[in-house]
Each structure stands twice: as C-alpha cells, then as structure tokens.
Amino acid sequence: MTEPARLEVQNLTRAFDGRRVVDDVSFRVEAGQVACLLGPSGCGKSTTLRIVAGVDMQDRGRILVDGRVVCDGANRLPPEARSIGLMFQDFALFPHLPVSENVAFGLKGGFRANRARVTDLLERVHMLRHLDSYPHELSGGEQQRVALARALAPRPGVLLMDEPFSGLDERLRDGIRDETLALLKDEGTAVLLVTHEPVEAMRMADLILLMRSGRIVQQGAPYNLYNAPVDRQAAAFFSDINVLQGRVQGALTDTPFGQFLTPGMPDGCEVDIVIRPQHLRIDFDRAGQGPAPTPENGQAALARVVRARYLGRESLVEFATEHSGIALNATVPGVFLPPAGTPMWLMLRRDRCFVFPRG
C-alpha cells in the first residue's frame, strides 16, 4: 500500500463572481520535499495556498495531511489544527515581543518551557545573539530568519511560504534561500512555496507546479520543466526564447536554418519552433565572410548584428536574419560586443529546439 503524502490536494476548485481562480488543482508533497507553486500574478497560486492554510474555503476538492482529511467541503479543521505552519512575505513578527518570545509564540508554555527548542532554532538560523532583541532592531534578512524559526518551532508537518524572500535585498536573497533550504531539509518538513520568480523556483524546489489561469499546466522536477516544456508559454516562462514560425508540409517545416522534422503535425498546421538564446550558436571565425558553415544537420543562416550588450556574466547579441529579417537573440559567455551591422553565420542546436502547434 502506498504511503500517504505529507500534503495532498485533490481537485481543488475556487470561484469568485463566477470566475474560477483555482480550477481542478491536484498535487502531492512528500515529507522533506519542497514544492513550488509558480506562475504570473493572478494565476491562482496564492489563493491555492490560502485554501490549504485554512484561511479560505474551496468550492470543491479535498486537502489531506498525512492521509487525514483536513478539509473536504463538508468537514473543515481550523487552521491551528492542521499541523500546517505559515510564513508570509511581510514576516508578521510581533513588534512588542523580543525574538525569543516571537519564536516561542506558538508553543505551549512560551519561551520558559521551550528554551531548548527556541535556542536551537535561533542558533541554526544564526540569530541566537539577538535572543533579546525586538523586531524593529533587526534588518530585513534577520527578521526573515526569525520568522522561519517561529514557523518551524511547533514542528509542523507542512510549511506554507508565500513569497517569503520578495522583500529582501537582491544581494541577500541567494544566501538566505540556501540557508532556509538547508534548515527545511534538516527538519524534514514538507514545504509548499509560492513565487512568481522562475529562478527562485529552480533554485529551491524539488517539484515545480506551473500555474496559468487557475490550472496547473505542468508539474515535475525543475530539470524536466526547463528541458521539456509543455508549450511555448511554459518555455518562455523560464527564459527568453527565439521563435521561428512555419507551416508543415509532409512532416517538414521550412526555416532560415533549413527544414525541421515536425512529425505528428498535419499538413498545413502552423507551428512555432522555439530555441533559447544560449542554444543559438555563432560562427566566430567566419563572421559572415566566406562560405556558410556546415553544421551536422540543417544549415547556417546569415544574420547581421542589430545591437550587442554586456550583461555581466554574458553578452546578449540581437540579430536580424539577412533575407527574412527574423529577429533572433544569442547569449555568449563573457564579453562579446560586435558592432551593429556585422554579418555573422548562425547555427541552431536542433536537439535543444522545441516544436509546438501555434495557439
């Protein structure tokens, strides 16, 4: 018999004014796993989180924690009885309580009865020296660490995190994310994290739940979502993309890079061939001069530089193809700033292209 998930959501649906903002959402989060609800603003991810937390009510569907139904429309446990911890983007620390009492707030007996648990957590988030400090005396990063310790103090089976790093200085985020992830894994807590930032989801999640218009359009490991997107929009959510448009004839589609195999697509079907900028290759040696390069399959396309910009770790070069004027972007590690108008041969990594019906 399969072990129950730490958190399981089944067919969750919620509508406001006749519009479904959460539409038949289902997923599982195992103990020790970090799952991320990812999507643009208004896609339904925060509403899903609030329903799981118990501060909003679904119209249909069930929520289970360790196999126990905590809400199914007919029966509903209050938030404090669900073994679910909450951590919000504003941290919501009590300004009149010192750090020690903030962390102990949800524990029976307060700080005196739970000194060992509180001091252990504060030590693990590097905040023990601030035991007697008040929230207004702490930086944003320090408040975030205290909020994390407070959320974990009662040992919840599930921790819900709503954009917890959005208020932090960008320079602090990576370090605090890594520290947070290490502590969550240490505790074995199942985590449901809401974010609209793909980089954050890729960095923290074991499981990404990509949402759009109230539905989960794709779920899986970060590697799978990035390398096998379900559609053009999913590909574009994780990075910039180049799009070649064409029409299928005999399972082939003509492009400036030669014909692409598009099996399974009916004749006359319009398709988008998608490639990320880092997989568009430049022939630096020829720089548009001499005969076209001969890639392993397909062909090279002649293009001219429109603009080149240095972004720090890499350079972004914007091109227009010579004959059709199609706009293409390529990223190159380090500094590469050819002048506008420079002709260059471009090649595609066909194994890294995605083909989707145009919708």
Rank of each mutant, 00 (worst) to 15 (best):
R129I: 00
M347Y: 09
T119C: 12
E8Y: 03
V306G: 04
A149C: 00
D72A: 11
V118R: 02
S239G: 15
Q249V: 15
T48Y: 05
P154R: 12
L302G: 06
N102G: 06
P256G: 13
T47N: 11
L252I: 02
C36R: 08
P295R: 13
L64S: 04
G167E: 04
R232E: 15
I63V: 14
V65P: 07
G67C: 03
V146T: 06
I275N: 10
R60F: 08
N224P: 00
H126A: 13
L37G: 09
H323A: 14
P229Q: 14
G264H: 10
V22D: 01
H96G: 08
L12M: 08
A308L: 07
L244N: 11
G250E: 01
C43T: 13
A234D: 07
F111L: 00
F27D: 02
R349A: 10
M204V: 09
G42H: 08
P164Q: 06
V355W: 12
Y226G: 12
S239P: 08
A116V: 03
G42M: 06
E322Q: 14
F319S: 06
T2P: 09
P338Q: 07
P156E: 00
E314P: 00
L64Y: 06
R19P: 00
T294Y: 07
G359D: 07
A251K: 05
V65A: 10
A15W: 05
T189W: 04
G341K: 08
E270D: 12
L348P: 06
E296R: 14
L225N: 11
Q289A: 10
I51M: 15
M161F: 10
Y310C: 02
P164G: 01
D66C: 14
A327S: 15
I326L: 15
D240P: 04
D267P: 05
E30H: 09
D267A: 03
L168E: 09
D254V: 13
T47H: 04
D272F: 13
S315R: 08
G106V: 02
A92H: 10
R281L: 15
P339H: 01
Q245E: 15
V243Q: 10
S133I: 00
E200D: 11
P222M: 13
M211D: 03
P229S: 14
G110S: 02
I275E: 07
A303M: 07
L121T: 05
L183C: 02
Q249G: 09
E197P: 01
A74S: 11
E137I: 02
D23E: 00
P78E: 14
G264Q: 08
R307K: 14
G298I: 03
W345L: 05
F284R: 07
N75M: 13
D90K: 12
A201V: 03
Y134M: 04
G110A: 05
R145A: 07
G61Y: 10
P98L: 01
R350M: 13
N102Q: 04
P135C: 01
R60Y: 11
M127S: 08
C269F: 09
R14H: 10
G44C: 03
L184H: 00
